[in-house]
C-alpha cells in the first residue's frame, strides 16, 4: 500500500492503492471445465433430479439442491439470445468497443456469456441489424489454449 497526498482537487484526498494478490481455487468442477477447454471441448454437468444441464458447469443444482452428476460434452454451436455493445469500457478491461453475448448452446439449460463478432460498430448504426438476436453462432477456438474461458476466442455467426 502506498499513500500520497493529493492537493490538486478542491477536497483534500489521499491516494490509497491496494496490492492484493489472489490465487482463486478452481475446485473440481471448474478445473475439469477448464481442462476441457484446453482440449477444445465444452463440458457441462447435469442434474438427474430434474433435467437441467449447466454450462459453465455447476457442482450442484440450485433448484433441486442436489449434487449434479454426469459430465457431458456439448456441441460448439448455439443461439445468440442477446448481446450488448460496450462502447465504453473500464480501467484494466478490454479495449472498447466489444460485444458481449449470452449464448444458449444446444442442449444447455443456461446461457454461456462470451464475446461475439459480426456486429457493425459504426457509430449510429443499429447494432442488431447485422447480427439479429436469435442468430446461430459457434465457438472459435484460440490458437494457444491454457485452460481459461478465453480459450474460446469468441463466438461467430454460423455460415
Amino acid at each position: 500500500m502506498t499513500t500520497t497526498a493529493n492537493t490538486e482537487t478542491a477536497a483534500p484526498t489521499q491516494a490509497v492503492h491496494w496490492d492484493l494478490h489472489y490465487d482463486i481455487h478452481l475446485g473440481e468442477t471448474w478445473s475439469q471445465f477448464m481442462e476441457g477447454l484446453r482440449q477444445k471441448k465444452i463440458l457441462a454437468t447435469g442434474c438427474s433430479s430434474c433435467v437441467r444441464v449447466f454450462v459453465p458447469p455447476q457442482a450442484y443444482c440450485e433448484s433441486c439442491f442436489e449434487p449434479t452428476d454426469g459430465w457431458r460434452e456439448l456441441p460448439h454451436e448455439g443461439t445468440l439470445e442477446v448481446f450488448t455493445v460496450a462502447w465504453h469500457g473500464f480501467t484494466g478491461g478490454p479495449q472498447a468497443p466489444y460485444a458481449i453475448g449470452a449464448i444458449r448452446l444446444d442442449g444447455a439449460s443456461t446461457l454461456l456469456m462470451h464475446w461475439v463478432v459480426g456486429v457493425d460498430f459504426t457509430p449510429g448504426a443499429d447494432v442488431r441489424e447485422q447480427l439479429p438476436f436469435g442468430t446461430r453462432v459457434r465457438a472459435v477456438w484460440a490458437e494457444e489454449r491454457t485452460g481459461q474461458i478465453l480459450d474460446i476466442a469468441h463466438f461467430e455467426p454460423v455460415g
Binding site: F83, P94, I100, W115
Partner: peptide, 27 residues
C-alpha cells in the same frame, strides 16, 4: 464492479455495472 462479475468465467469478458444492465435492456 467488474470484480463482482463471476471470477474466472465471466469476469474476463469485461463487464461493469451498466454492461450487465444493458443485457436486460437489449432483451
Amino acid at each position: 464492479i467488474n470484480t463482482n462479475s463471476p471470477m474466472i468465467i465471466e469476469q474476463p469478458l469485461g463487464m461493469g455495472g451498466y454492461h450487465m444492465g444493458a443485457f436486460a435492456a437489449s432483451a
